[in-house]
Simulated scan of single mutants.
Amino acid sequence: MAEIRALREEDIPAVAGLFHGIFRRGEPPPPGVLLDDLRAVYLEDTAVDPQLPSLVHVEDGHIRGFIGRHALPMVLNDRPLRMALCSSIMVDHAKAGPLAGAKLLKSALGGPQDLSFTDTASDVSLRMWRGLGAAALPQYSLDWIRVVNPAAALADAAAHRLPFLRHAAPLARFADRRFRRNRGEAVRWSGMGPTPSRNGTVTRPLDVEEFAAIFDTCTRRFAFRPGWPPEAIAAFVRKAMPKPSFGEAVIGGVFDRRETPIGAFFYHLRRQSTARVLQLLALPGQEGPVLDATLADAAARGASTVRGRMQPALMEAMLGRRLALFHASASIIHSRDPAITAACAGDACLGGLVGEQWSRLIGGETG
């Protein structure tokens, strides 16, 4: 007999086994750090809500499926809302019933939340969400990528197939320095020029509290946005910083000539590899200068490419800056209130910290 119930402490080893086999394609047993991470994220985190627990699907006394949930306070104009952030949906299809995944998701969407959201849905998950009345958000479902050091990008791509080519990194750095010196100022697909931005902005490192203040200022432009106090924003930033698989955390602010903050960026960098932008913030009309400053900062720190998640507010700034777009996972919204669904179609702050990317399960030691 099958049942769906709240996650318990004693379920963690079985959930870790599912996670390790499905998402990591690893052989049992799962590593101990994965058990610790799952326990911390889904049982101990401050975003865990007893009214919106993570769920397990149990058949014949065995856990055959799991879906994670966190409760995030959001605001639609002045109306407070509770959003269920759904993540890590997984089912042992070889041993579970054919509808186990759909039943698990239906139960997760049927809670007391005002809306449910995910930004990491696979094609299979997307079909299940849509079958339950959810709406895909294509404008939030694309990733962008920009080559900033072309020789390093080629070396990094080759090293994924032939690891010994990582020893060519010094030669790639030399080639990129020569390349930047010997090219004009025109914006091209093949890397950044020697002066990638002439917009008069200044970039400097930020501490977590400074970033939280800029986050609060820059997200007020959206009708649908986080309803988080500064200390909660700072807590999410701290949780998102340690991602060993993605590299060191880099947090910077972008300021105009009067030293007024116009935006900020938060990315993780593996030198001579990809800088993964977790959060990009900009005041209205300042998206282009902030994007330029982010690309220039990552290029100067030795990134080969810069990658981030698309936001509708950034779309116009993307024009003319030689960014390529691709689809990796889908962002999806489910709500019984049409006003919420309509706001999330464009005038919303979603993704980054308002998504699954803060989790230590993405880019962490198990990532």
Rank of each mutant, 00 (worst) to 15 (best):
2 A>F: 13
6 A>R: 08
10 E>A: 14
14 A>F: 00
18 L>F: 01
18 L>W: 01
19 F>N: 03
20 H>Q: 04
24 R>F: 05
25 R>K: 15
35 L>F: 04
38 L>P: 04
41 V>H: 06
43 L>P: 10
49 D>E: 14
56 V>R: 01
58 V>K: 03
59 E>R: 12
59 E>G: 00
61 G>K: 03
63 I>N: 04
69 R>W: 01
70 H>G: 01
71 A>R: 13
72 L>T: 03
73 P>A: 15
75 V>F: 07
77 N>L: 14
82 R>N: 09
83 M>R: 04
84 A>L: 02
86 C>F: 00
90 M>I: 02
91 V>C: 02
92 D>E: 12
93 H>M: 05
95 K>L: 12
95 K>Q: 14
97 G>Q: 11
97 G>K: 09
98 P>K: 13
100 A>H: 07
101 G>Y: 04
106 K>V: 03
112 P>E: 11
115 L>N: 03
116 S>K: 01
117 F>T: 01
124 V>F: 08
126 L>Y: 04
131 G>Y: 10
134 A>E: 10
136 A>W: 00
136 A>P: 05
138 P>L: 01
139 Q>S: 04
139 Q>K: 03
142 L>P: 00
146 R>H: 11
149 N>F: 09
149 N>M: 10
150 P>C: 10
152 A>I: 03
154 L>I: 13
156 D>S: 15
157 A>M: 11
159 A>T: 06
163 P>T: 06
163 P>H: 09
165 L>P: 08
166 R>S: 13
166 R>L: 06
167 H>V: 12
171 L>T: 11
175 A>F: 06
182 N>L: 15
193 G>M: 08
194 P>W: 07
195 T>W: 09
197 S>M: 14
199 N>Q: 15
200 G>A: 14
205 P>K: 09
212 A>C: 09
213 A>L: 14
214 I>S: 06
218 C>N: 05
220 R>A: 14
222 F>T: 02
229 P>Q: 15
231 E>T: 12
232 A>P: 01
233 I>Y: 10
233 I>R: 07
239 K>Q: 14
239 K>P: 00
241 M>G: 05
242 P>W: 11
245 S>N: 12
246 F>R: 11
248 E>C: 04
248 E>K: 11
252 G>N: 10
254 V>Q: 11
255 F>S: 11
258 R>F: 14
259 E>D: 15
260 T>P: 03
263 G>V: 13
265 F>V: 10
265 F>Y: 12
273 S>M: 07
274 T>E: 10
274 T>C: 10
274 T>P: 02
279 Q>T: 09
279 Q>W: 00
279 Q>P: 00
284 P>K: 07
285 G>M: 08
286 Q>E: 15
288 G>T: 15
290 V>L: 07
293 A>G: 13
294 T>R: 05
298 A>L: 07
300 A>L: 08
300 A>Y: 01
302 G>H: 05
302 G>Y: 05
305 T>W: 04
307 R>H: 11
307 R>T: 08
308 G>M: 06
311 Q>V: 00
313 A>W: 07
314 L>G: 00
317 A>R: 06
317 A>Y: 06
319 L>W: 08
322 R>Y: 09
335 S>H: 09
338 P>L: 14
338 P>R: 11
343 A>S: 10
344 C>H: 01
345 A>N: 02
345 A>V: 00
349 C>R: 07
350 L>T: 02
350 L>A: 03
352 G>R: 02
352 G>D: 02
354 V>F: 04
355 G>M: 01
361 L>Y: 05
361 L>R: 05
364 G>W: 08
